[in-house]
Every structure is written in structure tokens, then in C-alpha cells.
């Protein structure tokens, strides 16, 4: 039986000695950041009711889940009133999973972050899909006449859009219930945006572009985004945010419960990763940043 496993870093701003810092000469790798911080968090286990791994019934996921690491104390949450913060969550769907599972993963990931920050809502949720990368030369195929699309009569979405819509619909319903204030997508060029928008009821407010492209964003995208009220934000996340083999290696190195030093054929398959940040709005201070990831362990 595969075992679901929830990985947590805790707050990497204050507990991981700069794990989240880009070191010149290294490619900025959010995967390194995640792994370094996870390692720190596992090493922080002090033995008093805490352990590197423990199976618990996870009410958020709705099934038994192995927590790595496991702490008996509740998450710290935010220090000041909720209104003081901008809480941003970026959810990474992974190439290792089938799109059909993504809507369920989307719900689970968001619930897990809400629990971690002890907050009922997220200001901005950005969803990133595997295989979608920004193309600075991306131009709309034709000077497209503005299509006024009624979803009922609209042409079918492209296969790519069709695959991600179910997840996007989950976000839309969380927007309607007030859990998420603004929605965002990542690495969409103009033509992808044009393909997506007709099929949304809640338009994305944000499109995230990799920072290396921030000074070469094509004019048509800037114009289009402005017209549609979409803010173009920057990110510096790598394409592959988590690697199952790296996680296996880390488990063995840190002696996580149930993982010996020797190879025993156990495999880690990542399901999703959520990165969250809580920034004190009026002062620009990042108070909390961390990762939560769900993986599956195959015996």
C-alpha cells in the first residue's frame, strides 16, 4: 500500500539559517530551499513527544498520513491580527501526478496551509501547472478580435486548458466562499491567457513571470494584462520544485523513522508542494515562509 506523507519545513525565515537565501553562483533552486529547510525541521525534533515521523489521522486530508517530522505542539501561526498580513500561497502541481487528481490535491494543499498559519483565508493563491513555462517571444497568433465568449456556446478549450480547468474551478469556488481573495496563475503568456480567460468565472488577478524575464516581458502581454486587470508579478522558483529521489536521500541521511541507511527499494513520489508567505503589509517584513509538501511512499 502506498503511504501518503506530509512534509513540513516550519518557518524558514527564522529557523533555518538562511536556507531560503539565494547564494550567488548557485542556480536559485526552490527545491534546495525546500530540502534544506525540511532537513532543519527534522533535526529540530527534540524527542519530547515529537519524532521524525509518525502516522496520524489527518483531518485535513481525511485519511491516515505519515507526518515528517511530527510535532505534538500546534503550529505557531501568525503573531499579529490577520488584517496585518498579506498571505500568499503558491501551489505547485507536479509532473509526477495525473491531472485527474489535481482538484483533490488543490483542496488538500490549501487546507493544510490554512491550518499551518491558523488563518481562515488566503489573500493570493497562485497555482502553477507542470509543463507551462513562459515564452518571452510568445505573441498572440493573430491580432485577435476580442472574442466575447459565452461559455455555453464557446468553442472547446484547448487540451492543455481543459486539463487544468478542474483545479482552477476548485480555486474559483474557494474564492466564492471567501477563502481565497485573489487567484493567480504562473508563467502564462498572452496566448495561454487568451485561451484560459473565456473559461473562467473568476478571472486571475495575477500572472507570475520568472524574474529573469522581468525586464523583457513582451509589450503585448503588458498591454493585455493591463486591459484584463491582471498584475504581472515576478517569482524565482525553479521548474522542478521537488525531486522524489532527493527526498529519499534526505530521509535516509537524517534517519527518519522507518528509513534505514541501506537501499530497500522504497520510493518517494511527490504529489504537490505549497509554498506560503505571510508579509506584514505596512512594513514589508516577511514574518513567515515555509513549504508543505505531500508525497507518496511506495514500498
Amino acid at each position: 500500500m502506498p503511504q501518503k506523507c506530509l512534509l513540513k519545513t516550519s518557518n524558514i525565515m527564522t529557523t533555518s539559517s538562511g536556507a531560503g537565501v539565494h547564494r550567488p553562483g548557485h542556480a536559485t533552486r526552490s527545491n534546495t530551499e525546500l530540502l534544506t529547510a525540511l532537513r532543519e525541521n527534522i533535526r529540530g525534533v527534540d524527542g519530547e513527544g515529537s519524532t521524525t515521523a509518525k502516522v496520524v489521522l489527518d483531518e485535513v486530508v481525511g485519511e491516515e498520513v505519515l507526518r515528517v517530522p511530527f510535532y505534538d505542539s500546534p503550529p505557531v501561526g501568525l503573531q499579529e491580527e490577520r488584517e496585518e498580513y498579506d498571505v500568499t500561497v503558491k501551489l505547485f502541481h507536479l509532473p509526477t501526478t495525473a491531472p485527474v487528481h489535481q482538484p483533490a490535491y488543490t483542496s488538500a494543499a490549501i487546507s493544510a496551509v490554512l491550518r499551518e498559519l491558523s488563518t481562515p483565508r488566503i489573500d493570493l493563491l497562485i497555482i502553477a501547472f507542470p509543463g507551462i513555462t513562459f515564452d518571452a517571444d510568445d505573441l498572440p497568433p493573430t491580432p485577435a478580435p476580442e472574442p466575447i465568449v459565452d461559455p455555453a456556446t464557446a468553442p472547446a478549450p484547448t487540451a492543455e486548458i481543459a486539463a487544468l480547468l478542474p483545479s482552477y474551478n476548485v480555486l474559483e469556488s474557494l474564492h466564492q466562499t471567501g477563502v481565497i481573495s485573489r487567484l493567480g496563475i504562473s508563467e502564462f503568456g498572452t496566448s495561454r491567457l487568451e485561451s484560459l480567460l473565456p473559461f473562467t468565472t473568476v478571472k486571475p488577478s495575477v500572472d507570475q513571470i520568472n524574474v529573469r524575464d522581468c525586464c523583457v516581458v513582451p509589450k503585448p502581454l503588458i498591454v493585455y494584462a493591463k486591459e484584463k486587470g491582471i498584475e504581472l508579478l515576478t517569482h524565482n522558483d525553479c521548474a522542478e520544485v521537488i525531486d522524489g529521489r532527493e527526498v529519499e536521500k534526505l530521509f535516509r541521511e537524517e534517519g527518519v523513522e522507518g528509513w534505514g541507511e541501506a537501499e530497500d527499494g522504497k520510493k518517494v513520489v511527490p504529489l504537490w508542494v505549497a509554498k506560503y508567505t505571510a508579509v506584514v503589509r505596512s512594513r514589508g517584513v516577511v514574518e513567515n515562509k515555509g513549504y508543505i509538501a505531500m508525497v507518496e511512499i511506495l514500498p
Binding site: 531560503g20 524575464d213 508579509v279
Partner: peptide, 10 residues
Amino acid sequence: SYLDTVNVDV
């Protein structure tokens, strides 16, 4: 790194 962490427009 800080700018990578907070939301900054392009």
C-alpha cells in the same frame, strides 16, 4: 532573496 519572497510586479 527578499524580493523573490514578497510579491513584486515586473
